[in-house]
Design a protein around this nucleic acid. Sequence first.
DNA 1: CAGTGGTCTAGACCACAGG
DNA 2: CTGTGGTCTAGACCACTGG
Lengths: 232, 232
Amino acid sequence: MSHPIRNWQAVKNEVLRRIHERTWAPGDLIPTETELAEEFGCARVTVNRALRTLADAGLLDRRRKAGTRVATHPVRKVTLNIPVIRLDIEDKGQTYSHTIVKREEKIPDAATRADMKLSRGKKALHLATLHKADDCPHALEDRWINLASIPTAKHVDFTTISANEWLVLNAPFTHGDIAFSARTATDHAITHLDAKSGDALFQMDRLTWDKTQSVTKVCMIFAPDYRMKTIV
Amino acid sequence: MSHPIRNWQAVKNEVLRRIHERTWAPGDLIPTETELAEEFGCARVTVNRALRTLADAGLLDRRRKAGTRVATHPVRKVTLNIPVIRLDIEDKGQTYSHTIVKREEKIPDAATRADMKLSRGKKALHLATLHKADDCPHALEDRWINLASIPTAKHVDFTTISANEWLVLNAPFTHGDIAFSARTATDHAITHLDAKSGDALFQMDRLTWDKTQSVTKVCMIFAPDYRMKTIV
DNA sequence: CAGTGGTCTAGACCACAGG
DNA sequence: CTGTGGTCTAGACCACTGG
């Protein structure tokens, strides 16, 4: 406050402070961009950038004509980084390696065919990969690749570069969805992940699309005690 | 392409298209803002906004002087909405209710005391709440509230408004961390969540801070088969 | 219809880091 | 030192939507 508030980050912090100190309580209408710009002695666009950022973060509700309100239910938008597994492991200072447990071209089960909108009777590439950190099992990946979308995948050797990573570089996608859940260890997981019977395992399911065509469907099961962390 | 590219979203889409079509491959240096602005016939700031958005999404790497490159490892930044549980349930068209399973003021266990940086021998408010959707158990919340941070919590009746929701409105925090994991059902969970022995349950742990002081620590365990979903 | 946010522009200066 | 992104400004017009 000794310094003038002239850059958007300072404006953001000042607004944040007022929300925090309850100068503006949840549900309250706050001054317009023009008024704040005048108060802070900066351009309206600067205030706009600050408020827009806070709205993106879920702390403000903005509507044309209606003005800007402090969100009554500040939905916490958590951003999770879903990196290439190799990098995730290497970031922890561990050595990454992977092995192909299974590779086959076959007609997928009905559920997978439906999820990926594949033609009946068409084969897809099925891969099971074990990802290891310092030679300890880290995650088990079960993946289907739509060969209609990515025909070149057919002849790629996934032993040097994992399918996970190859697809990131070579199979662009437009959108996808992810689901996280908990599952009891299957025999398959027990065999490869050093899990015990009855262990609860963290699971991530992903399905990605290139416009209207599915690209790949993957189910990743992590070793026991895996925790996915993030900071708000 | 028939239309000029004059607004930042159009610029973003065009850049996205070029990345997607491999006009600019992963790792490639793309033209500078000035060059793109000239090509598209718009202001540099407009290009800046588009590229900044894409960089925020993890698809571009930008560095002063070094220029802008297509990310080689497009870290997927997934944003999860962690809303108030009540809204989450009501959004699905179900009826929300909750019951207080336990409420006590007591000296927390050593782990909690350490996590929350509480003074030795100081009591904290401990709450166990069962959240229900259409009267079916949905999630079990185990929460510690730092009474040094939020002294007013001591006399709040959490039966009308859940602690989850009351804290959102009355306990501002500056930051926090979240972890997701899978756990086998404890007896406590089995009793309240209709879980069977050996079930794998999805768990979320949160710890929030107001500057240097802890606010609340919560462990949320969801009913069997719960899936947390998001779209990329 | 009028008020509020959303965006664009042209020009300017700054901050940072590569070479 | 120089090039690139980061940001600010003043003014303008547009888009949406509440009243």
